[in-house]
Design a protein around this nucleic acid. Structure first.
Length: 256
DNA sequence: ATGGTTGCTTAGCAA
């Protein structure tokens, strides 16, 4: 199984690029974030033509997540079901084959100390609660998406400069680590230990050509799924050129 | 210290 995650920053603007990427990469599962469209507007037919089925939790203007798969998507869930009001479409889970796939778009947090940052930390804790409540670390489970957290200094081009920002703040890293501590492995780190592997580059200041990036998009897997993980990579090429998302896809491979 | 870019929506916000 080939599993990928990609923050596309508007499926409307990125549709042709995503279709072209699917045609070449042929993942079995693709998790999308920031689709920015309601479910009625999502271009189902274009993906169906490439052989993909779709599970959606969409929203106008902001957020929006989707899971594309070449086989059936079963037992679709769209919220934590923890009793809290949730206006944002940031969570989507579905079973593909034997694997439970969870697609998340973790809140960015905007500014450290803001209400949005508190919401980000709270959201990560709710995600941990969801795993405790509905899953076991022994499940075949992949938690994929844009976490808006770079876990370690080697995941940030300039850790000192980014330490006070929402993407690399100690509180965000702690919340992320508490999620990992439930029983998850970072698919990229199962296979690559070097720094300089980034999944997001700001549109501004020529950040991409300078490789001023951060690794904030992740495929996190339970131990049983980690045992089946034969490789992982970030497709930096997908960030190149005009009309690219500011994120690159993360791809992981598993034996069946 | 600030700005810079993109997308959605139309001047300002979110990222």
């Amino acid at each position: 199984m080939r599993l990928a995650t990609w923050n596309v920053n508007s499926i409307r603007v990125r549709k042709e690029r995503v279709l072209a990427w699917l045609t070449v990469q042929r993942p079995d599962v693709l998790c999308l974030q920031e689709t920015k469209v309601t479910d009625e507007v999502f271009p189902h037919a274009d993906f169906a033509a490439l052989g993909y089925r779709v599970a959606l939790s969409g929203q106008r203007t902001y957020n929006g997540v989707a899971i594309l798969a070449r086989t059936a998507l079963k037992d679709v869930v769209r919220c934590f079901d923890d009793g809290e009001d949730e206006a944002d479409a940031r969570f989507l889970a579905a079973t593909v084959g034997q694997v439970r796939v969870i697609c998340v778009y973790v809140p960015n947090g905007q500014v450290v100390g803001s209400e949005r940052f508190a919401y980000k930390l709270r959201w990560l804790r709710r995600l941990r609660w969801y795993l405790d409540r509905y899953h076991s670390p022994q499940d075949l489970l992949a938690l994929c998406g844009d976490f808006n957290v770079a876990p370690e200094p080697r995941d940030v081009h300039d850790p000192d400069a980014w330490a006070d920002t929402v993407l690399f703040h100690p509180d965000a890293r702690t919340a992320f680590n508490e999620l990992i501590a439930w029983g998850l492995r970072d698919a990229i780190r199962l296979h690559h230990q070097e720094g300089g592997l980034y999944s997001w580059w700001d549109y501004r200041q020529l950040a991409f050509p300078r490789n001023h990036g951060l690794r904030i998009d992740h495929v996190l897997v339970t131990a049983p799924l980690a045992a089946q993980c034969t490789g992982a990579r970030i497709d930096r090429d997908a960030r190149k050129g005009q009309g690219a998302s500011d994120h690159a896809p993360v791809v992981a491979e598993f034996t069946d």
